[in-house]
């Protein structure tokens, strides 16, 4: 297991794209928003938490089709499936690697991008926390989608169509935490719901992902 995560991280660093691409995409989305809605600070302040959450979510989505595709193409996935690792463990590790290479950099970058959208001062902490708690759920759910579409030639678009509806609850609770935090309101309820969602998906969804991966391998 440890070898698998080490290998995936090494590959992400060396092959490039892993860290950089998602972050650059996040930056571009956040840059484009003011062009679309106008430069008024009051409006930007109001929508900043939501924009940052949606930007992070889309950046997360961008790299999902690589979670299994590369291992599928070069045959590693077959070999991993015959190795003494449970399939559930493999998909969990894959989700973890995706989070470390995509989710975590987004979490760290989000406060900096908050500056661009004049996020109010109390919002930074809650934005950071909500993303820190919520992005693992995005990676785990995304890994399920990636496992569903791994054998398909043009799976990328289908992957988005399958995964985005599944992202709805995470987005709602995550953005709610950030928004309430920015407005100085109580955040306990959505924060707990978000944490519950993350832990729940992390505990249960790998079984579904492993099942669909087994189906796709045969």
């Amino acid at each position: 297991m440890r070898a698998l995560i080490a290998r995936d991280l090494a590959l992400a660093v060396r092959a490039g794209g892993g860290f950089g691409l998602g972050l650059a995409f996040f930056l571009i989305v956040v840059t484009l928003i003011p062009f679309g809605v106008g430069p008024e600070t009051t409006l930007l302040t109001e929508i900043a938490p939501g924009i940052l959450w949606i930007g992070a979510l889309l950046a997360c989505l961008l790299s999902l089709d690589r979670v299994f595709a590369l291992d599928w193409e070069d045959g590693s996935l077959d070999l991993l499936a015959t190795a003494p690792l449970p399939m559930e463990g493999i998909v969990t590790i894959k989700a973890l690697a995706h989070w470390l290479t995509t989710g975590l950099p987004l979490v760290l970058a989000a406060p900096a991008l908050g500056l661009l959208l004049s996020l109010p001062a109390p919002g930074y902490l809650w934005l950071f926390l909500s993303l820190l708690i919520g992005t693992p759920a995005l990676s785990v759910i995304g890994t399920f989608g990636a496992a569903l579409t791994v054998g398909l030639k043009r799976g990328g678009l289908l992957l988005s169509l399958l995964v985005l509806p599944l992202y709805v609850p995470t987005l709602i609770f995550g953005a709610e935490v950030a928004r309430r935090g920015a407005d100085g309101l109580a955040v306990e309820t959505p924060l707990l719901m978000l944490a519950g969602l993350s832990f729940g998906t992390l505990a249960l969804l790998p079984f579904a992902s492993a099942a669909v991966l087994r189906v796709n391998l045969r």
Partner: peptide, 28 residues
């Protein structure tokens, strides 16, 4: 058969998330 397997699991997972979305949307 592959399609049947995958869509069945998607339906299962989707149902759970549809329910979660229902509550999330109410809350939101």
């Amino acid at each position: 058969d592959t399609a049947a397997d995958l869509t069945s699991i998607l339906c299962l997972v989707g149902s759970v998330f549809a329910l979660l979305s229902r509550y999330a949307v109410n809350f939101w």
